[in-house]
Structure formats: C-alpha cells, structure tokens
C-alpha cells in the first residue's frame, strides 16, 4: 500500500482461509523414498569416517589426491590408482554464515558453513562442512581448522560423524 493506494480491489485470502477450508485446493504429500547405493568409493569413505579418518583416492597420471574419493579421475578419465589416508585438518577455502534456517525462519546462533581444503589432498580438494567453536566474525580465509569427531560409539558412517571443524593454531598441527 502507498499514500495514493489505500486498498486493492478483490478479496484478500489469508492462510487461515485455507486452513478453515474456505478456499478450495488440493493438498498432496508424495511418498518418495530412496536408498542410494553408495558404491565402491563412497562406501570406503563412509567406513573410514566411522574409524575417525578421512580417505582419498589418487591418480598417478595427474598426481592428484582426491577428496572425497572417487573410483575414477574425472580430469584424466581413467580409473583411480589407489587409496590414501589424508589428515583431518585443512584450511578454509570459502565460507558463509547462515542466519536463516531451512524453513526460512531466522536462527539465533548462525551456522558457519565452509569449504575446507583438506591437508594431504591436492589443492582445491576437500570437504564442505560446518565451523564451530568460533564467533562467526572471527572466521578468515586460509584459517587452519581441524575436525571435531563424535565419540567412536556414536559414529555411524556418515559425514556427520564429524561434528564440525574448529580453528587450530598452525603450530599445534
């Protein structure tokens, strides 16, 4: 509305009108469920997360150490040559601070999401995860971080076996 326009023509429909059945509509909730086969590469990766380790595959043609692991090198288009454990530390490549939850509501404690280049993997290779134990205003590009793991008995073979990455001082690594 503005100074000149005080009201629009027509009827205003409110959410409550739908709830009370005053507006005819069709509601439908599809039942869509899947169980994706993780496959060779991701099965091993998830298994190693359960062990508290991050595993990569490597390609002898281009020399890349690839995280998350894959059975093929997409650059060279050939099978990967083997497995290699990498560290659970890395540096922040990029990050954002999410003040909005999945349902578009505002959240009090913002979620810091970051792409972390993992130490031991090739540059630009890493994991997207959350950053914790730091005020979001303190987060910096190139900041060293380390995985904070769930206790072994709580790990299920999921990316959430890592709770988040926390900042660490360079010399402690």
């Amino acid at each position: 509305m503005s100074e000149k326009i005080k009201s629009y023509p027509g009827f205003r429909i409110r959410t409550a009108d739908f709830r009370e059945g005053k507006v005819p509509y069709v509601a439908y909730r599809p039942k869509v469920r899947y169980a994706w086969s993780a496959g060779i590469a991701m099965s091993r990766f998830l298994e190693e997360l359960k062990n508290g380790r991050i595993i990569a595959t490597y390609c002898n043609s281009c020399g890349r150490i690839m995280v998350p692991p894959r059975v093929f090198c997409e650059e060279c288009f050939k099978p990967a040559d083997g497995w290699k454990h990498v560290k659970d530390t890395g540096t922040i490549n990029t990050y954002s601070v999410s003040f909005i939850a999945g349902d578009a509501s505002r959240i009090k404690e913002p979620i810091i999401v970051a792409v972390i280049d993992i130490d031991g993997a090739s540059p630009g290779m890493g994991i997207l995860h959350k950053i914790g134990e730091i005020d979001w205003k303190e987060v910096k590009f190139g900041m060293k971080v380390k995985a904070v793991w769930k206790p072994p008995e709580e790990r299920v073979g999921s990316i959430t076996d890592i709770k988040y990455f926390k900042p660490v001082k360079e010399e402690t690594l």
């Binding site: 994706w36 086969s37 993780a38 496959g39 060779i40 590469a41 991701m42 894959r70 059975v71």
Partner: peptide
Amino acid sequence: IMPELSYKELMF
C-alpha cells in the same frame, strides 16, 4: 539390482 555400484560408477 546392482548395489555394488553407485550410479556414478555404473555410468563410468
């Protein structure tokens, strides 16, 4: 069923 491969590995 082909549970041994992911769709990516199948396509590869």
